[in-house]
Design a binder for these strands. Structure first.
Lengths: 287, 287
DNA sequence: CCGTATTACGCTAGCCGTAATGATG
DNA sequence: CATCATTACGGCTAGCGTAATACGG
């Protein structure tokens, strides 16, 4: 049985060539290494080094041993990595969302429900990325804007979906805007406009770009900066009913509802069917 | 850094379930194991066990860790195996031969030339098995009955072949045999005979079976027993000029040369081209 | 109670670092 | 003589085993 520290030293010797260099790299002493390499040869009963009085070098078998040592160390490090990763996952509740608003609601609920655990959330622009994350265990839960109905070959549901909050998109227009007096508009009415938009709003971003022809989108990822620019200019921008509760809409703008069905959204919390019962407490937290 | 003995103990715990059982299997004490498992958790900073006061069991992450431990141990054992195997190979000169006679000559030469090394020789019936052994490193050298001319895609010779001894086959006939008075015969003349034959004579065995139609071969693998039976019966059998030097032919038999070219053999020592220079001393040992 | 895990405690084998030695270019 | 490996030596710690403790079926 070869102890790990010796395997590490052997691999390091193959890399750094001299004991003194290895001693520096591994923060130990030349004599310690000299002894360890002798001990290694003794345990194996095999000569691994060409030695002259003040020079040591791996021989052919020593090189072979060092390559194997590297393999052992890789397995060793992978073991540590995997265990720590598994533990980290066990200690964090991780979910992904297609839009920011559900995260504002869900994270406080989860933090309260799973006390002592870290709650981690990701915003993703596509459903596919979220489903993939749910499948590979990255997410315990995902938030989509539709229930997920996929079934296996026997017709059994693979996922459990639970309605969560609704969210509705509005457009913010300057008072002087040609559409400012409308009761409601369609996204297509904004064709050709210059529009200020936050680029970290999940699926909203794609929907808006898709449904408004020929618009120029001025992107901004800093929320506070975005609000300042909205206030200071006559540019068109967006808000939702949920974001309106979080922060007051800027003065001097008209808030006009949008008629498109795609931006009047019911969100759903989705988890794997077999884990649904683990989340009963969570799913009964809103009703 | 997790020392090997702890990894071994973790893997053993997964297998044997209780510390006391592991203590027996690994020839150590319960307390030593208890401490080591605590130390392991401490180093990883991860809880690996479900504990009650007098019971310990791997939890989910512990099981994961144990599976990885098994992988590390496999790599570890493979390292030791490979190094010892490489060392064993380095200490033995191994060659294969298509027939026994070259071995009688070659082994003494090699033993003398490579003093301190073990000389190991295999008798093989087919050229293919020998060439394969030369390619995969099992043999440093092989003895065939022809030079090996194979070349790589650039027309460079892959092998170096050096003529070795010659050997010629004779048939031993009882004085009363119908062919006993012939000066020489062909193998085909023995068609239909009952023939006593040693089955560990490499390629001779196949050649004889092939060239003598309808003969009945009585096989014997013990050389001394074979000689006794030859002496005591009127069966046909074989010898060669080289085997005749090793031991006197039995009395009461006629020794008749065989004319077939295939049993009048020039042997060749063959090694990989790139190793030919390692064997210059050997190849100049006969000339 | 017997089997099991853990804690307590003293021992010591083994590993370490410093210093000395020897060789080499 | 600067650099490197090895040997010598004393110190110390980490792991050991025994014994004691505690719990559970």
């Amino acid at each position: 049985m070869i102890e790990t520290y010796i395997i590490e030293q052997l691999a390091a010797l193959a890399e750094y060539k001299t004991l003194s260099r290895v001693a520096e790299e591994l923060h130990t002493s030349q004599p310690a290494l000299s002894r360890a390499m002798q001990k290694l040869e003794g345990e194996l009963g095999v000569t691994l080094f060409d030695r002259s009085k003040n020079r040591i070098a791996l021989n052919e078998i020593g090189e072979l041993a060092a390559r194997h040592a590297q393999i052992v160390l890789s397995a060793h490090n992978e073991m540590i990595r995997a265990v720590k990763e598994a533990d980290r996952r066990r200690r964090t509740f991780s979910y992904g969302s297609i839009a920011p608003a559900p995260m504002w609601e869900l994270t406080p609920i989860l933090s309260h429900l799973y006390m002592g655990m870290t709650v981690s959330s990701d915003l993703q622009e596509t459903e596919d990325a979220l489903i993939k994350g749910l499948e590979n265990g990255t997410y315990n839960l995902i938030v989509l804007f539709r229930p997920l109905e996929k079934r296996d070959e026997n017709g059994n549901a693979l996922y459990f979906s639970k309605p969560f909050i609704r969210e509705k998109l509005f457009v913010l227009l300057p008072l002087s805007h040609r559409l400012a007096s409308q009761k409601a508009i369609n996204l297509s009415d904004l064709a050709g406009e210059k529009i200020l938009i936050h680029n970290k709003i999940g699926f909203w971003y794609g929907i808006c770009k898709e449904k408004i022809p020929n618009a120029t989108f001025l992107e901004q990822s800093e929320l506070s900066a975005l609000r300042e620019i909205v206030s200071a200019t006559d540019l068109v921008s967006f808000m939702t009913d949920v974001s309106g509760q979080k922060m007051p809409p800027p003065k001097g703008k008209v808030i006009v509802p949008i008629l498109d069905e795609e931006v009047n959204v019911q969100f759903y919390c989705v988890c794997k069917k077999e884990r649904a019962q683990d989340f009963t407490a969570l799913f009964s937290a809103w009703c």
